[in-house]
Simulated scan of single mutants.
Amino acid sequence: MTQNSKRRQTKSVAQESLKNQTPGDDQHIEPQNVTVEVVYDELTIEEQQERLRLERVIERSFYEAGKALKELRDRRLYRSTHKSFEQYCKDRFGYNTRRQPYLLIEAAAIVDNLSEKCDPLDRILPTNERQVRPLTKLDPEEQWEAWQRSVEAAGKKVPSARIVKDIVEQIMERTKVPNPYQISEVCQILPKDNPELRGKGKSWCIVTEVNNFSCTVRAWDGEYVVKMDHLKSFDYLEEDCQQMGVLCDRLTRLRNQGNLEEAALSVLKQLGEIKRPYLTPVEEKLLGVLEREYGVG
């Protein structure tokens, strides 16, 4: 056995001596230190590589889940058994809230952003979704700044969610501006450099929740959390916003039917990109035909 495969530990045996002391025995027992040899087996090069691989699998489990959920959602691979992605996730994975799968999807996108900027020789990335969650409130460049500062605050280690949250709050306080949007307001989505919003540049949406630095919005194809600078209001009148809300409900009910043909999905996509608060007579007829065909009304 090599010297490198052994380590020495010192252990007090006072308790063992006290165990052997009979009741009423006033004899003073001096603690004694003994050296105990603990043998560790050295790993082979292959075993070290396999350990590193498995550790990274565990660290990236939330990331892999987010990537898989995004593909399931984008390709609508749930449609054979469920009308909506949210219900599928609840039944299949036991997610208790509608937001949980979207949080994982968003977390995976943020890890991709951090990975692009991370030094390959000093690769410190998040190991769970809770560490990433505070970063969703920041722009990509600010996410990188917040993560680097969090790593430094943790002593060049993976920071806790609390450390990340504190750093994010400091950055947000530095750039705090009022949220100008209102519930039921109709806006255009501006993807910019957010990979989660890629392909949504022509879509309109309805604001359903106003947060400090973002809005939860509902589009024809799902719900999103969007930062303020990724939205642009259409400045519609209140009655126009109400009409668009009704239209969004109709499109959502059709989408949730599942098993829609490509032609039907194409019509929904086109209606989800109109830049006016009304449907033309032809568009209204097309939507009505789809609603009757799929039994939605």
Rank of each mutant, 00 (worst) to 15 (best):
M1T: 01
S5K: 04
K19C: 06
P23Q: 11
G24P: 14
D25M: 12
I29T: 11
N33R: 00
I45M: 08
E55A: 09
S61T: 05
E64A: 13
T81Y: 10
E86V: 15
Q87N: 09
Q87L: 11
F93S: 03
F93D: 04
G94F: 00
Y95F: 15
T97F: 03
Y102E: 14
Y102F: 15
E106W: 02
E106M: 05
V111T: 04
E116K: 00
P120C: 12
E129H: 15
Q131Y: 03
P134Q: 04
L135F: 06
T136W: 11
K137Q: 14
E142Y: 02
E142S: 04
S150T: 06
E152T: 06
G155V: 07
P159C: 11
V168L: 07
Q188K: 01
L190H: 08
D193K: 07
N194P: 02
R198L: 12
A219D: 03
A219S: 04
W220D: 04
K227Q: 14
M228T: 00
M228R: 00
D229V: 01
H230C: 15
K232P: 01
Y236V: 02
E238V: 12
C241E: 14
G245K: 06
D249T: 05
R250G: 05
L251Q: 03
R253I: 05
L254S: 06
G258R: 09
N259A: 12
A263W: 05
A264T: 08
A264R: 00
A264D: 10
L265V: 04
G272V: 00
I274M: 04
R276H: 12
P281V: 02
L286C: 08
V296M: 02
